Simulated assay, not measured.
Amino acid sequence: MTQARSAQPSAWNIANLMTVVRVALVPVFAWLLLREGGTSTTMRVAAFLVFGIAALTDKADGELARRRGLITDFGKIADPLADKALIGTALVGLSILGELPWWVTGIVLVRELGITLLRFWVIRYGVIAASPGGKAKTLLQTIAIGFYLLPLEGFLRLLSEITMGVAVVLTVVTGIDYVVRAVRLRRGRGKEA
């Protein structure tokens, strides 16, 4: 009697293709954002559209992979790296243009690098799932960056600054929460799924 083995999905699937497309859009986005010193409204709107498309692929690829059983080791690694590349490029680009303080970019990048290193530190003990706060952080960062990419003034510019401020607070709070959960997992006191 033979046991049926569950077939692992191929790394060559639509969800992973969307992740690869997101990675490929990062340099296009950076070029559009920084072109003409960031002063061209047309280029800024184009950068906003490319950023938006890339951000939508982030949401779509994960849902598609879960719904169709297309979760692969490649996707587990490439998807968060693609997200970090997109968000990091946007923050650095906006800071280069003088539109976002470098300390904001630094806080977000240090947190993301730290969380990536923590994941490697606890990987043999388990995986820490994204928390609702972490998902809210990502959503707010994406919305705030979208606002910053557009040539907004007045109240809308203030709204972008407030949104980014809340995103930075969530970045710090969820980073601390992740460290606490990682330490508990490593010590064996907490089981995360």
Rank of each mutant, 00 (worst) to 15 (best):
Q3P: 02
S10W: 01
T19A: 08
R22S: 11
V23F: 15
V23P: 05
A24P: 11
P27A: 10
W31G: 00
G38L: 02
T41C: 05
T42C: 02
R44D: 03
V45W: 14
F48A: 12
L49T: 10
V50W: 06
T57C: 01
D61V: 10
A65E: 00
A65M: 04
G69R: 02
L70A: 12
T72I: 03
D73H: 05
D73C: 01
I77F: 14
I77N: 01
I77S: 08
L81Y: 09
K84A: 08
T89C: 14
I96C: 02
G98T: 15
P101N: 11
W102D: 07
W102A: 13
I115M: 07
T116L: 12
R124W: 00
Y125S: 11
I128Y: 09
P132D: 11
P132H: 09
I143H: 06
I143R: 03
G146N: 05
Y148L: 04
Y148E: 05
F155Y: 06
E161N: 07
T163F: 12
G165T: 05
G165V: 06
V168T: 15
V169I: 15
V169P: 11
L170C: 05
V172N: 12
Y178T: 06
Y178S: 04
V179Y: 12
V180S: 07
A182P: 02
V183K: 13
R184Y: 13
L185A: 04
R186H: 13
G188C: 08
